[in-house]
């Protein structure tokens, strides 16, 4: 075994990149579920964002515009889900699964002419002096804007949920939609907004895959990250801070296990391969021993006549 060939700086730096798509998608879904809606279509919205962002970035030459359009595309797709479940009161689980299938098919169709093209590269943020700090500088301050945006988003969501009136209303809708309705809040409208926000986040997460992390368009390239994001929200007990922890753990252990393999560590590869899932679940389950629970109205349909 030659562990010296693992460069901890590069390892930690790539950890942040690996965790970002997951973080975006999970944060979006967190808001959706806090509003009492279970949208299983994360995978479909991510892949739609991945292809939409890729196409726009390639055509316009601007990754920023790509990310923006990915957010819009994800949000548009999620509005379809919102229409089905909030207006026509369709089953949320079935509609979410349908959204995933639809998104995978739609993205494959849209992306047919974009296979094998290199996207314009997303510039790294120039943080000047900060990046020159030994070790910490290279790890923390040499990334593109989206990596930081994901972290800022997590903090903003925490602030929104716990320190603002609007956040309180959103949580009220998720905990007891009948009571929120009786107080005069527009439950369906609030849920529409939450679902669209979730879609936009998933879209951006997908675009981060196709524009930065891989970077290319391939059919079905999300390969299950959307499902991991869904699971992560539950294991993180619907708390933004724990979503960050979970996403970084998952991304980090994943990169670490590949590094250990390449360095020839004397740990059986099977254990290394399953370690990202195992470690993430274990840590978050232990942390959620504090009786946190799901929003009480999660997945239940709401109609004003009830």
């Amino acid at each position: 075994m030659d562990l010296s060939s693992i460069n901890p700086v590069l390892l930690l730096a790539s950890l942040m990149v690996a965790a970002t798509p997951l973080l975006f998608a999970a944060l979006g879904e967190l808001i959706v579920e806090r509003a009492g809606v279970l949208n299983l279509g994360v995978e479909g919205m991510m892949i739609t964002g991945a292809v939409a962002g890729f196409i726009i970035a390639v055509e316009s030459g601007s990754p920023a515009l790509g990310f923006l359009c990915a957010a819009i595309a994800g949000a548009l797709l999620s509005l379809l889900f919102a229409l089905l479940t909030q207006v026509f009161l369709a089953n949320q689980v079935a509609s979410g699964l349908a959204l995933t299938l639809f998104g995978l098919g739609l993205s494959a169709l849209l992306g047919r002419d974009y296979v094998g093209i290199k996207p314009p590269s997303t510039p790294k943020l120039d943080l000047g002096m900060l990046a020159d700090i030994p070790f910490v500088g290279r790890v923390l301050f040499t990334h593109d804007l989206m990596v930081y945006l994901a972290l800022v988003l997590a903090i903003a969501i925490w602030f929104f949920l716990h320190r603002t009136r609007a956040g309180l209303i959103l949580r009220a809708v998720g905990e007891n939609h009948d009571a929120a309705h009786a107080l005069g809040y527009k439950v369906v409208l609030i849920r529409f907004a939450a679902i669209a926000f979730g879609g936009a986040c998933a879209g951006v997460g997908g675009a981060y895959l196709s524009l930065v992390r891989v970077p290319q368009w391939t059919e079905g390239m999300t390969a299950g990250i959307g499902w991991i994001a869904l699971a992560l929200v539950v294991f993180a007990s619907w708390k933004p801070g724990r979503v960050i922890l979970g996403a970084y753990l998952f991304g980090g252990v994943n990169v670490l296990q590949l590094n250990l393999q390449a360095a020839g560590a004397a740990i059986p590869v099977e254990y290394l391969a399953m370690s990202p899932y195992l470690v993430t679940i274990l840590v978050l389950v232990i942390m959620s021993a504090d009786r946190s629970r799901a929003p009480a109205s999660l997945g239940r349909p709401f109609h004003a006549s009830n």
């Binding site: 060939s5 390969a223 990169v255």
Partner: peptide
């Protein structure tokens, strides 16, 4: 030869990560 097992046939993100790790290790 440095060999990394991805335990998947198709997962672009993971395959890209594996390639990056190998490149980082020389």
């Amino acid at each position: 030869f440095k060999i990394v097992w991805a335990y998947t046939w198709f997962d672009p993100a993971k395959e890209a990560d594996a390639a990056k790790v190998l490149i980082e290790q020389g």
